[in-house]
Design a protein around this nucleic acid. Structure first.
Lengths: 181, 181
DNA sequence: ATGAAATTGAAATCGGGTTTCATTTTCAAT
DNA sequence: ATTGAAAATGAAACCCGATTTCAATTTCAT
């Protein structure tokens, strides 16, 4: 159930309101509820994640509507969809969230966001070299996160080869580690 | 129909032979035919691409077998699967083909392979900074290729911004354009 | 109030890919 | 060559996330 609507949340509602108006679409109770919950949850939710959370309190809101509404959020630039390797589409907050790429732990599913202006620059150079005009990109790194690697070291056979350079020459910018089921 | 088996092709057959033997699997006519065609075609084929080509001459080989056999090729390190954004799995040659990433033209479907040791290094550094152990990655750039951009400039509104450094490093194609519904 | 247009949700459908299962093929041991 | 157990095959059924259909409901400008 919606917490104490802090003002930053309001802003997204206004954006959505505008989006609907600009496109001749209608306001609805369902859309309001879904946006509320979407904004409250952390990023990287699947439709089903959201459905389960919402369905507990709003038995009348169906999966189909959530699919459709999340797509609206993407159109309205409030959300962005990402696809990892499990065939599920996840939705992250996009409003005032800057671009980033993802590292995904194949053990626990944690998604770490990272940004590297250097990589982005190199990317642009490569595209230029081919006369290629970039529209978008996705850069996903799959592997084992620190936590899982440690847990693994404890439990598994002690024969795990692991290179621990621990130098972090030019560490990644921004982004906070986050956990997820 | 199989062309004049040049010796380089033979090598992959030997590799596959070994793979089968090592895993208690059996040699079959279908597998031979599928490998033959897979090796002959350019990279980035979907199961259906291959099926259509093969089915013309070998009515008796089914899609299911092609699915299964391509997966075998991946296990045998003869092929590698990549997934773009259209939901189809494509298979590229992997034997003695070094790692690369992809630029995909959203207009004509052309796939350009690129390599950037600098990006790979930055990637490693970022992972290190998070104590993350990399298992694999995918880096895909979507946009408009040079050819399509030019074609577009001719036909569309003349307002396309385009930076054309034209330096070109290394190119590779594959895949035919698809028409949209 | 009212009615045209948008929205909703259950169910049907889509589509790539996988699994099932009865039949056929392979191949090592005779 | 024979044989028989294990593997392979292919058609059809199935899986599952996502989309479409359609009758009923809701929204909202008039």
């Amino acid at each position: 159930m919606p917490a104490g609507n802090s003002s930053p949340t309001r802003e997204e509602f206004r954006v959505f309101e505008h989006y609907l108006a600009d496109n001749g679409l209608k306001h609805s109770r369902q859309r309001e509820v879904i946006l509320q919950y979407f904004l409250e949850t952390g990023g990287h939710m699947t439709v089903d994640d959201l459905y389960r959370v919402i369905h507990r309190k709003h038995r009348e809101i169906g999966r189909t509507t959530i699919y459709r509404t999340l797509k609206l959020f993407c159109d309205a630039k409030l959300a962005e969809s990402i696809e990892l390797k499990d065939g599920l589409t996840r939705f992250e907050h996009h409003y005032k969230h800057s671009h980033h790429d993802h590292m995904i732990c194949i053990e626990c599913g944690t998604i770490i966001e990272f940004v590297s202006p250097e990589i982005e620059n190199l990317q642009d150079e490569i595209a230029d070299a081919y006369g290629f005009t970039i529209d978008s990109h996705r850069h996903q790194i799959f592997g084992v996160c620190q936590k899982c690697d440690q847990r693994r070291g404890r439990n598994d056979a002690p024969s795990r080869t692991k290179k621990n350079k621990v130098v972090a020459t030019k560490a990644a910018t921004g982004s906070r580690p986050r956990s997820s089921p």
